[in-house]
Design a protein around this nucleic acid. Structure first.
Lengths: 159, 159
DNA sequence: CTTGACCTTAGATTCAACTCCAAGGTTATA
DNA sequence: TATAACCTTGGAGTTGAATCTAAGGTCAAG
């Protein structure tokens, strides 16, 4: 039996977080002391571990609620239901990753085109790319008038 | 010279969004009509294109503010400043992608271990993985008592 | 019997980037 | 002149997951 602070410390969460989980129905302490303190049982702790593990895997609290309601009533659910939750999440995640990879490619292309040196940004190819209408990125080699030996290592035949 | 609705339609944004950009200083219309309507110039439109392009690349509005303030005063900034903004973003993005890939791997492992069939979830390996303390995931082949021919295609020698 | 660490509650705030609303003013067209 | 389509403002709501605040109750030690 743990009080909120003990449970919080044991699992490295804030007491606020546990109260939040209580309020939102994810984890209600199985009893209260006479004075109203939350008292968490070992089962409650187990449930918290479930929540934290699911969170670490990338589930939202809403997903976790769903998984917990299945968990509490396993025999009335099928594997297909559980796998469905996971697979939807997986598809979301793949879409998100694809999007971020697209951003990354764009940024990488911008970064590569810029010398990154102490030259004035007047001809900075990053700014020019953001100003222009085209998606082509011009390298700075042509616009900066100085010895390019230090700054061109990143910018080779792009665009 | 465009009124807010025209500019919005031309660039496929909502008028609300343009008012939001105005309020937050990203894009203030260069003039107002006698009756107070926002009037956007061609320069304003160019600035909007800059914003939208930067957004599409994955910059936050905060990042974009910073880029715009450099853009407006290019000669007092160096390429290094601009590239710095991009490279910080790139590093953030890489960290985010790595995190999501980690989530994805975890979810994929869970998904692969579950038959996804109409069997009761009582021995669902996904739920068991979330309940257990170990990170090992047991495949359902051993726990479901039925012809496994349809459901084991995803679960081979995992864990 | 007081100090300090703990606990309670309801409700406000945070972040991003909008999005929506109400109440009212303007402008173009029939 | 009436109607519809536009515009204005300030302010509230959205999502997710907390985090913080204020005002107060409880408990163990000295």
């Amino acid at each position: 039996m743990y009080r909120i602070g003990e449970l919080a410390q044991r699992y490295q969460v804030k007491t606020d977080t546990l109260r939040f989980y209580d309020k939102h129905g994810l984890l209600k302490p199985s009893s209260r002391s006479e004075s109203g303190y939350r008292i968490y049982s070992e089962d409650d702790a187990q449930r918290l571990r479930f929540i934290l593990r699911a969170k670490a895997i990338g589930f939202s609290l809403t997903d976790i609620s769903e998984l917990l309601s299945i968990e509490l009533d396993k025999s009335n659910w099928a594997c297909a239901d559980v796998k469905g939750v996971v697979d939807i999440k997986l598809a979301d995640l793949e879409a998100k990753i694809a999007e971020l990879n697209y951003f990354k490619t764009s940024l990488q292309r911008l970064s590569d085109a810029c010398c990154g040196g102490p030259e004035s940004a007047e001809h900075c190819s990053i700014l020019e790319a953001l100003e222009s209408n085209s998606s082509a990125i011009k390298c700075e080699n042509q616009t900066h008038r100085h010895d390019p030996s230090h700054y061109t290592k990143n910018c080779q035949s792009k665009g």
